[in-house]
Simulated assay, not measured.
Amino acid sequence: MTARVLLLATGDTMAYSTRPGREGLASGADLLRAVPAESLGAEVTVVDVAAEPSWDTGAATMLALARRVRSAILADGFDAVVVTHGTDTLEETAFLVDLLAGPAATRGGIVLTGGVRHLDDLGSDGPRNLASAIVAATAPELRGAGALVCADDELHAARWVTLADATTVRGFSSAPFAPVARVVGDRVETIGAAPPRPPEAGGPPEPDVALVKTYPGMDPVLLTSIVDAGARGVVLEGTGLGNVPAYLFATISDLIEWDVPVVVASRCRTRRADLTELPLGVGLAAKLGAIGARDLAPAKARIALMVALGGADAAGGALAAARDWFHRWR
């Protein structure tokens, strides 16, 4: 039986034509026509989704895509969903899709892809990435792997993928982890294991979560002003294993007393250890009540805290919900 695939096309660079007289965005159907029919091997339904440019994508757009992906598999009976997306924030949208997929991750394939070159550029990578994404989305070997990002024939887990180089078609990386798989022609070769599935979301994600990069000499009032402006949670991007300046500790303590969760991530690659498991100097923030992001990059930690805070009502508060969610996800 031919697999049924829903293609959600959001435009952006891979769909943009710069040829004089033909400037503008191609539709999802136009993108699909750029892929040789013999390369598809699936029945593809195309839906164009109105979306901001990737660099300006809002939480509402990301959430709408995540919900559409989930319902396409669980309610509409599609075997797989492919989303075309701009590369700037592709990893954040992919991660939110992954966190909200729930049982859809085991019932169908979910792949997001994009391109760093325009549709009519010489050697455009968009059509190839789209063709490979459709192959991967319908591959039984990847069922249960959750949301994946397809670039240059490689499939990266949403939890690990990052755009490490915006100047090349090979810019996405899962390092230090291996890609989950690669596409070879019309088949998939697995390479590494997918990460563990995340806990189920307890409710709609909380969009008002701030990400703050710490730096020597920063004024602690920056944190309180963010909360005064409405932030329901804060992710601090620290250094090393998760160090933040000691003069922020009093403010971190205040935020936690106000039931505003503080998650500490690092700008570096780190182990999957919690703050409480790290050496005393690094783990001091945990003694104040801060939560460790484990191995999540700061931008991913923000998405995770948004999802964690969706269960705040059931958990009895924002801090309790955040601690519970991060504790359950190993």
Rank of each mutant, 00 (worst) to 15 (best):
R272K: 10
L25M: 06
L241G: 13
H156P: 01
A166I: 07
A194K: 10
R67T: 15
G292W: 03
E91L: 07
T10L: 06
H85G: 13
G202V: 06
M218D: 07
A229H: 05
A178S: 15
V212N: 05
D219L: 03
A157V: 13
T113Y: 03
H156N: 05
A315E: 14
G292M: 02
T167I: 00
T93W: 04
L63P: 13
F249Y: 15
G292Q: 02
T138G: 03
T214Y: 01
K213W: 04
R107T: 09
G292R: 04
V235E: 02
A315P: 02
A246Q: 15
T10K: 05
D165C: 03
S54Q: 10
G108T: 09
V97H: 13
G233A: 04
R159E: 11
L100Y: 04
T10P: 00
L100G: 07
A104R: 09
I134V: 12
G310C: 09
L32K: 08
G144K: 03
V264M: 00
L241H: 13
L31I: 12
D228F: 05
I191T: 10
A318N: 10
T45Y: 05
A59T: 13
A133D: 14
V83S: 12
R107N: 11
P176K: 08
I73L: 13
A286Q: 03
I110T: 09
D121A: 15
R187W: 04
A37Q: 15
V111E: 10
G86N: 08
L6K: 09
L99D: 13
V260K: 06
V161R: 07
T138W: 06
T190Y: 09
T167S: 12
E52Y: 05
R170H: 07
V46S: 14
G310S: 08
P103Y: 08
A136K: 11
V282M: 08
N129V: 03
R107H: 12
R269L: 10
T239S: 12
A147T: 04
A273Q: 12
S253A: 15
A94I: 04
P279E: 11
P103D: 11
G292T: 00
L241E: 11
T113P: 01
A312M: 10
S266Y: 00
C150S: 03
E38K: 09
A304S: 07
A133P: 01
A147E: 06
L130N: 10
R197P: 05
A60F: 00
G77K: 14
R271P: 00
D98A: 14
R67W: 15
E237C: 01
V149M: 10
C150R: 01
W55C: 13
V282P: 01
V282I: 14
P179G: 09
P20D: 12
E92H: 08
L280A: 15
A34H: 11
